[in-house]
Amino acid sequence: MKGYVGVDVGSVTTKVVVIDEEGNPLGTPVYIRTQGQPIKAIQKGIAMVREDLPRNLEIKGAGTTGSARYLAGVLIGADVIRNEITAHAVAALRFHPQANTIIEIGGQDSKIIILRNGLVVDFAMNTVCAAGTGSFLDRQAERLGIPIERFGELALKAKTPVRIAGRCTVFAESDMIHKQQMGFSVEDIVAGLCEALVRNYLSNVAKGKKIYPPVIFQGGVAANIGIKFAFQRALGCEVLVPPYHNVMGAIGAALLAAEEMRDGKKSHFRGFDVAEMNFETSSFECSGCSNRCEIVEIKSDGKLLARWGDRCGKWEVIER
């Protein structure tokens, strides 16, 4: 049986999946926190995903995406390294070929992808602030002492959502505290936060774009049913959350790998033993010119795997 590995390393979480040729996840998709240590998270994710894979599985390709896609690519020996916009679009189209709009909200990035007839025609990512993203909700849930998993259901219990200034995380936080001190209920505040996030997303990330249904909502924040309902209210249409919404980037990376390896090339995938390998990283500042580039090196057991960060290319090495 043929399988493809997809790894999506984001700012907050790391996702690892193995899919079959049709794009269906095999075993259990992994969704864990990156905790600022991408290498460890990738290794842990690889170790977890191999637990319940079918026995006769043969890995034919591997792909990586997310903000640590290059690092992840070197670590696992990826055949394709692609940006998260393409990966998310490819994955969404696999499950919803008719999709016209994809809303993706992750830890630090939020994106809107506009599709027509199965093709990406336009996209945007948040540029200024994280007030429209998962980290913001995470932080506020912590402040309110609510587990983030329960955030959504609490929001649904709200009677009158409080209006919270959502332009910037700092202002949102002080406004939220103010509302708490005024005596509003936790449910109303939580619902207000969901609406603030949606408002912020629509006016900053999606500004000027025509949002037509079907609207697909994916990324970690899609787990939050409060946000989903807030989107439906704001857009006046149904918002679909796909079954594997939180690992769609990884599925997309795996699908892109499958596409890349269609003609039967040999995969560079290092195997699931990557979980046990030793990786070291180090960095230095090049003094060759006024650019003063910061160079990063990744080694495994003393062997140089990759080096990057220079503008001129004199240090750059990427081992396959």
Binding site: S67, N83, E84, I85, T86, V120, F123, M125, T127
Partner: peptide
């Protein structure tokens, strides 16, 4: 730079797929 690169890559992907179709 990371943000610029991600957008450029996605944009080029968009153009490639559009041309393919």
């Amino acid at each position: 730079k990371a943000g610029v690169l991600t957008r450029l890559e996605a944009f080029v992907d968009l153009l490639r797929r559009k041309r393919m179709v």
